[in-house]
């Protein structure tokens, strides 16, 4: 009789926080590296995948890897403080130790998207998963494979905009890239667009021609964005979104992230709208 020699998917690898960016009053981005360089080297995520972050003594949470795979040597996570683990993460400092396991889940269909224009629609912290794909597509080595990139992003207020350095500075300067930013209510010092994301989307009215629309944000935003896209003529398999369900194991065993017979941790979090429509409405 032998003991299982397989790697243990439930045991995280130790990692260190090397940089923390205050994005908004309740969102921080954390750059992390594995303590073991071989683990760092072998960690090959794809855009849209997630990891389980551990603060030992508190627990784990599922967080999207927001950095693009083209950016080697670090992993970046943007975390909104909502509960126990996320608050514990927010209390950590540069140099603090955490645990990471993953990558888990499916990924954005970046192969299928080649040759197409891409329309990203994000709200609040929902930009985090999209950002891994945006930066992947905009990376020099991949840029030629994709057409125009449009990014529509909104948050409640100026303060609540995540990744300001990307949406306001870096991305607008990238070739073939347009960024539309909006906040819910007018504010002193804001000269950009004011209004909800779905309404802004309808205003911009992008054509569905040769295009994929990828959206992530609060459920209510997603709901109206999907309706708007449908109105504009996007077909169900041109629209992609990511889903959120409570997760624990991340590997299809603990049984809680199911929507019908699909596990979001294995079969998601990325779904085409056409797939979503075939799932029971339990998310």
């Amino acid at each position: 009789m032998r003991n299982c020699q397989c790697i243990n998917p439930l045991k995280p690898y130790p990692a260190t926080i090397i940089k923390i960016i205050d994005e908004t009053p309740d969102v921080k981005s954390f750059q992390m590296v594995f303590d073991n360089p071989a683990v760092m080297e072998n960690f090959r995520q794809k855009p849209g995948q997630v990891a389980q972050l551990s603060v030992f003594g508190v627990g784990e949470a599922t967080i999207s890897i927001t950095s693009s795979p083209t950016r080697r040597g670090i992993l970046e996570f943007s975390v909104k403080k909502v509960g126990m683990l996320t608050s514990a993460l927010h209390r950590l400092e540069v140099g603090s130790k955490v645990g990471i396991r993953g990558p888990y889940g499916n990924h954005f269909p970046y192969e299928v998207m080649k040759g197409k224009d891409l329309l990203f629609i994000g709200g609040g912290i929902g930009l985090a998963p999209l950002r891994s794909l945006i930066d992947f597509v905009l990376a020099e080595e991949n840029r030629g494979d994709y057409g125009k990139v449009e990014i529509i992003y909104g948050a409640r207020s100026m303060d609540d905009l995540c990744f300001k350095y990307d949406i306001l500075d870096r991305w607008p300067q990238m070739p073939g890239t347009t960024v539309y930013t909006t906040i819910d209510r007018a504010e002193l010092g804001w000269e950009g667009h004011v209004g909800f994301v779905p309404a802004y989307l309808e205003e911009i009215n992008p054509s569905p021609e040769n295009k994929y629309a990828i959206t992530c944000g609060p459920p209510i935003m997603i709901k109206f964005v999907l309706q708007a896209l449908e109105k504009m003529g996007f077909a169900d398999d041109q629209v992609i979104t990511t889903l959120e369900m409570k997760m624990k194991c991340g590997i299809g065993k603990c049984g809680r992230c199911n929507i019908g017979s699909k596990y979001v941790c294995l079969d998601g979090p990325v779904f085409y709208l056409s797939q979503l429509k075939r799932l029971p409405p339990e998310f």
Partner: peptide, 18 residues
């Protein structure tokens, strides 16, 4: 099959095999 699959679960596997 739940504890096998793409991510074999070492705790279950260990006990099962032992």
């Amino acid at each position: 099959p739940v504890f096998n699959g793409a991510y074999p679960d070492p705790y279950y596997q260990n006990r099962r095999e032992n």
